[in-house]
């Protein structure tokens, strides 16, 4: 008999368990339904979707693989957007993690004048919705001649407040004796960071890496403001341009939407733990 049952003095109630599992299954099905709808509809002609909307029914007469062939046929910009999204996501995650870890280390390991005031600024960024500042930020990007470039998308968020906060929190748990040992061995402050601390931070990079990947892959509003040329569009922006009431864009829209979720789904399948860790990191300590 499991120990916890002895403690509480009773077995889990089987009837109640079945009811609860059934209840969660029902909600689970409702939550998954939109994905199934999306998947089923990738086999229907686009004009059918414009007329009838999304649903679960599919008949043998309108079943078609044309959308999938169209997607992989190379006649659309879809895979340009796809590779743009890939590239932007990788660049954004690498730079954001690098810079944020560097800054987080400064906050965690040193005591210096003005530290608290500057740390309050980190918290302040988290407390002001980006949407309020998007117009002046956009004008700033125009001034800096960064419009229509990936740099313009990445740069404003490279010292990411929540990542800095997370790294700082993580590093506070690392004994400072490592640093002192490094100093005794004659390493410079930056050498200590890159050679001694960086390797220890791996788990925190996984959590923040996943979280930032998800954010970058799905990012829409800011890239939409910054990017101009269709050849530079990312997936969310490209897909959004298909959402017009005219033409047969829905052929590509539905299958493209479904396909765009897959990379994140696959990541989630393999790195579930880090998704959850990164997501809940802020809440634990508040």
């Amino acid at each position: 008999m499991p120990k916890e049952n002895i403690k509480s003095g009773r077995k889990p109630n089987m009837v109640l368990r079945i009811i609860m599992v059934a209840f969660f299954s029902l909600i689970g099905v409702i939550l998954v339904l939109p994905f199934i709808c999306n998947f089923v509809s990738t086999f229907k002609p686009g004009n059918e979707l414009i007329r009838h909307g999304l649903n679960l029914t599919i008949s043998s007469e309108n079943f078609t693989l044309a959308n999938w062939k169209y997607l992989f046929g190379g006649t659309t910009s879809y895979f340009t957007w796809f590779s743009n999204s890939m590239l932007l996501t990788v660049l954004q995650v690498v730079f954001t993690l690098g810079v944020s870890a560097f800054v987080g280390y400064g906050f965690a390991m040193y005591d210096f004048k003005g530290k608290n005031a500057i740390f309050i600024c980190v918290l302040l960024i988290m407390m002001v919705p980006f949407e309020i500042l998007m117009l002046p930020m956009y004008m700033q990007i125009i001034n800096m001649k960064l419009v229509n470039s990936f740099a313009g998308i990445i740069l404003p968020f490279v010292a990411n407040a929540s990542s800095i906060f997370f790294f700082r929190q993580y590093l506070l748990g690392i004994p400072k004796s490592i640093i002192d040992a490094g100093r005794v061995d004659g390493a410079s402050e930056y050498g200590i960071f890159s050679k001694l601390i960086f390797p220890v931070m791996k788990p925190s990079f996984a959590a923040m890496g996943i979280l930032n990947t998800m954010g970058a892959w799905n990012n829409f509003l800011w890239p939409m403001l910054v990017l101009r040329d269709e050849s530079k569009f990312t997936l969310p922006i490209g897909l959004n341009t298909l959402l017009t009431p005219y033409g047969n864009n829905y052929d590509l829209l539905i299958v493209g939407s479904f396909f765009s979720i897959l990379p994140i789904f696959i990541l989630f399948l393999f790195f579930q733990r880090y998704f959850i860790e990164g997501m809940t990191a802020g809440a634990v300590k508040g």
Partner: peptide, 13 residues
């Protein structure tokens, strides 16, 4: 995991 799935999608999709 199932409850978390919808959070993986972009608002666009």
């Amino acid at each position: 995991s199932v409850f978390f799935l919808p959070a993986l999608t972009s608002v666009v999709v």
